[in-house]
Design a protein around this nucleic acid. Structure first.
Lengths: 189, 189
DNA sequence: TATAACGTACAGTTTTTTCTGTACAAACGG
DNA sequence: CCGTTTGTACAGAAAAAACTGTACGTTATA
C-alpha cells in the first residue's frame, strides 16, 4: 500500500485498516465484472493509490509476481477500469484507476451485453429464417407447423427482449440513462 | 433434445440444426450471468423444451451425469432462470425455463448488483467514519488532513455512485425501467 | 411397514484457470 | 553500438472449478 510520509504510525494504522476494508470488499465483489479476486484486489489497491503506480510497486504491495501484475493490469486496462498514464522521465509504465465509476460501470456492461446480444441475435434470426422457410416448404403439414409455431414464438419473444436490451445499452452508451435515473436525486424537502 | 413425433427425419434435421445454433449461442454467452458454458448449454436445452424436463432426460440429452444436472439445474433455479414445476402423478422433479427474459435479466442483475452494493457500501461507510473520526482527533495535523481528504473524497464519490446504482436497481425491481426504456418502441411513421 | 425410485452429499478425478520463474525482445542511456 | 532496464511470452507448477460414481437419506407408493 502507498507509503504515507509525515504521518505517525498510529494514524497510519487507522488509515491502512480503513483502506484495507474497502480494498478487500471491492476485491471480493469484482466477480460481478468477471474478474478474479486477486485482480479485483489489485484494482482496490490502485483505487487508494494517490499517484500512478508501476508494475514493480504493485508486485511488492500484492506480494505477487511481476508477471501476474502485468497480465492483471492488462485485463483492467482492457476493461477500461485502469488507465495507462505517461510521466516524462520515467521509463516504466504507470497505471491509475479510472475514478469515474459511472463510466466504468456503463462501459463494462455495454461491452459485455452488446457482445452477447450481437451473437445471440444473429443466431436467433438465422434460425428463425430457417424455420420459417421450412414451414413454407410444407404448407400443409399440420404437425410440423405446430412444432414450428412454438419454436418461432419463443425466438420472437427472445428477439423482442434483445431489441429492448439494445435500447438499454444505447442509453448506457450515450448517457441517457443519467437522464432517466439521475445521478443526483433532486433535493427533497 | 426433445423428441419430435410425426415429423419426418428430414424436417427434424432442420429443426434440430436451428435449435442447436441458438442453444450453443446462448450457452457461450452465459458467462455474462456468471455461469459455466455447460450450465449455459443446459439452459439453452431447456429453452427449446416444450414441456418440463426431468433430471434423467437432461442427463441423457447433455450426455452428462445426473449429479451434474442436479447441481446445474439448482444453480439455474437459484438464479430464477429455471422454475421447478409440479406435475401430479410424477414423482420426479420437473423443470422448465422462465420464458420471460426481461424478468430473468432484471432478477439476475438486481440480485448480483444489490449484493455487491450492500457489502461495498457498508465497508465504505464504516471506513469513512473511521477516517473522519481520525481527522477530528487531530484537528491541527495538516499532513494528516491532506491524506484524509483525498481518501474521503474518493469514498464519497464511490458512495454517490452506489446511491445511483441503488436507484437503478430499484427501477429494475419495480419495473420502472420499462417506463424509462419501453419494451416496445412506439410505432414510427 | 417394506420397497423402490429419486435427488443430492461427498470424495476422488479430470479439466481449467491462476500464478510463477525464466528467457527474450524492445527501448533507452551511455 | 553495447549494456541495462523494462514488459511480456511461454512453459511448467499450483490452485480452483467442473464433473463423475457411489452411497445414502427421503419420500411416495404398495
Amino acid at each position: 500500500m502507498e507509503q504515507l510520509h509525515n504521518i505517525s504510525s498510529e494514524q497510519e494504522l487507522v488509515i491502512h485498516k480503513a483502506r484495507k476494508r474497502v480494498i478487500e470488499s471491492i476485491g471480493k465483489n469484482m466477480d460481478l465484472y468477471g474478474i478474479s479476486q486477486s485482480i479485483g484486489h489489485l484494482y482496490g489497491l490502485l483505487f487508494f493509490q494517490n499517484k500512478p503506480m508501476t508494475l514493480d510497486a504493485m508486485g511488492e504491495a500484492m506480494e505477487m509476481s511481476k508477471t501476474s501484475m502485468s497480465t492483471g493490469v492488462r485485463t483492467l486496462v482492457d476493461l477500461k477500469m485502469v488507465n495507462k498514464v505517461w510521466e516524462k522521465g520515467s521509463r516504466k509504465d504507470l497505471y491509475e484507476v479510472e475514478l469515474d465509476w459511472f463510466q466504468t460501470f456503463a462501459d463494462y456492461f455495454s461491452l459485455k451485453w452488446r457482445k452477447a446480444l450481437e451473437i445471440n441475435l444473429s443466431s436467433l434470426r438465422k434460425s428463425r429464417l430457417e424455420l420459417s422457410q421450412l414451414g413454407q416448404q410444407f404448407p400443409d403439414d399440420t404437425e410440423l407447423h405446430a412444432v414450428l409455431q412454438t419454436d418461432i414464438a419463443k425466438i420472437d419473444e427472445a428477439i423482442r427482449y434483445y431489441r429492448w436490451l439494445d435500447r438499454l445499452i444505447d442509453s448506457f452508451e450515450n448517457g441517457d440513462i443519467y437522464n432517466l435515473v439521475p445521478k443526483e436525486l433532486p433535493d427533497e424537502k
